[in-house]
């Protein structure tokens, strides 16, 4: 499957799952800020991606796992900001979001973690995943 085919399919999935218009979906669109996604939508999106691309997506594999930032014991968060160790952890866990993580690293507040989730990072994830 080509990159464009994957993009079109991801776009259709987001249009269905988030009830947005075709033209609202662009590669740089952020799911929460731009497409109005809520946390409950992510599981729905994962189910649809699994079905449409015939893949299995583990928890925390595609989207940032909230557990990573839930406990101060991990050292990944300090005073509402993701620490360098936390950033390393996200880079390791979400290689498909490297471009978004670069932007995030400039102002790594936990409340900005949601901005990592863009249309393009989903497409990159599927490209990697389906390439085997």
């Amino acid at each position: 499957m080509t990159h464009d085919e994957i993009y079109d399919k991801v776009k259709d999935i987001l249009v269905d799952a988030l009830s947005v218009d075709d033209e609202d979906v662009s590669p740089n669109a952020k799911l929460m800020a731009d497409l109005g996604a809520e946390s409950i939508d992510f599981l729905d999106i994962v189910f649809r991606l699994e079905k449409n691309f015939n893949i299995k997506i583990e928890r925390g594999e595609l989207f940032p796992d909230p557990e990573t930032f839930a406990s101060p014991d991990t050292g990944f968060v300090k005073e509402g900001t993701v620490t360098p160790a936390g950033l390393d952890e996200i880079r390791k866990k979400l290689p498909h979001a490297s471009a978004e993580i670069d932007v995030f690293a400039k102002d790594p507040q936990v409340s900005n973690v949601q901005d990592l989730i863009t249309v393009d990072m989903i497409v990159k994830f599927i490209v990697n995943k389906t390439a085997g």
């Binding site: 599981l43 729905d44 189910f47 079905k51 928890r59």
Partner: peptide, 10 residues
Amino acid sequence: LTDVRPEGGA
């Protein structure tokens, strides 16, 4: 039941 995983299902 179309989807089952520890986080939820559909």
